[in-house]
């Protein structure tokens, strides 16, 4: 890996060794690394601060990223350290050896209901912690942001990040940038319409898309066409019931339908999801 001397100095000071590149994003890249003291593997996200919006810089670089270090949950990717140097942000975090849920589903297709139940319960637990303990919304729940550790436990990563990058404060709407395109399938009707929305309920919606995807091996709505997607989302609950595989239990379909409620007011909360019959 080509690495400049300042970056190398940061890594040396913190006792990390950089290994191969894991992924490339629009505003940075993720490397695999090793903590030299105990040979533990870590993921190192390197973000280019000059490519970030002013709002992102103000909100996260200074304060809120520090709060993420305090976040401790079995099903949330732990952040060990955050360093700002050489106009870059270095985020040292837990390494998950089995990749993302996207990779898993692309390889193996839909999950059995029992596996989906285990993973979904873990994710609900993580989100409940983020919503109630940290009083934050994740804002970018998607298969790419669910990682699998060496024991195949799911871990939620990247919260509070991507959405903020694409939020335009002056226009009060989301920017149609490349970063947002990949997240389209997980958008609730309010986001599709670029209307003000409750971020916690938007997280809940994305969890519904996730659960549907786990059980069906596909996305519920036609996200490539936003107006068609909105039609499908608001044809409720007829549409969502009609596209679910007929092998899926009534309890699972009931939970999916309660989550993918286009009306924010009546859409269930994470706490209510955790008490649903299917998760008992």
């Amino acid at each position: 890996i080509e690495i400049d001397s300042k970056t190398q100095a940061v890594l040396d000071r913190k006792n990390y060794r950089l290994l191969e590149k894991l992924s490339q994003g629009s505003f940075g890249e993720v490397y695999k690394g090793e903590f030299k003291i105990d040979h533990r593997l870590v993921a190192i996200k390197i973000l280019d601060i000059s490519k970030m919006s002013m709002k992102f810089k103000e909100r996260y670089v200074a304060r809120e990223l520090k709060a993420l270090i305090e976040c401790r949950h079995l099903n949330v990717v732990q952040i060990y350290d955050i360093i700002r140097s050489n106009n870059r942000l270095y985020i040292f975090m837990e390494y998950c050896s089995n990749g993302t849920l996207t990779m898993f589903i692309k390889k193996f297709g839909a999950c059995s209901e029992s596996l989906a139940r285990i993973w979904f319960r873990q994710l609900v637990d993580a989100l409940l912690y983020i919503h109630t303990e940290l009083k934050m919304a994740h804002r970018d729940i998607k298969f790419d942001n669910v990682l699998l550790d060496e024991k195949f436990n799911v871990k939620l990563t990247d919260f509070g990040f991507a959405k903020e990058l694409a939020w335009n404060d002056n226009k009060q709407q989301l920017e149609l940038t490349a970063t947002i395109c990949g997240t389209e399938p997980f958008m609730c009707p309010q986001l599709v319409q670029r209307r003000p929305y409750n971020p916690m309920k938007a997280d809940v919606w994305a969890m519904g898309v996730l659960l549907f995807g786990l059980l069906n091996g596909r996305f519920p709505f036609n996200w490539a066409d936003p107006s068609l997607m909105l039609k499908e989302q608001t044809n409720y609950p007829k549409f969502i019931r009609s596209v679910s595989k007929n092998t899926i239990s009534e309890e699972a379909n009931d939970l999916i339908a309660k989550i993918l409620d286009p009306d924010e007011q009546t859409r269930i909360t994470v706490l209510e999801i955790s008490k649903h019959l299917w998760l008992k």
Binding site: P220, V243, K245
Partner: peptide, 12 residues
């Protein structure tokens, strides 16, 4: 069938 057709739509 319609179900098979649907199952091939919107891949992850």
């Amino acid at each position: 069938t319609l179900k098979t057709l649907i199952s091939k739509m919107n891949p992850i």
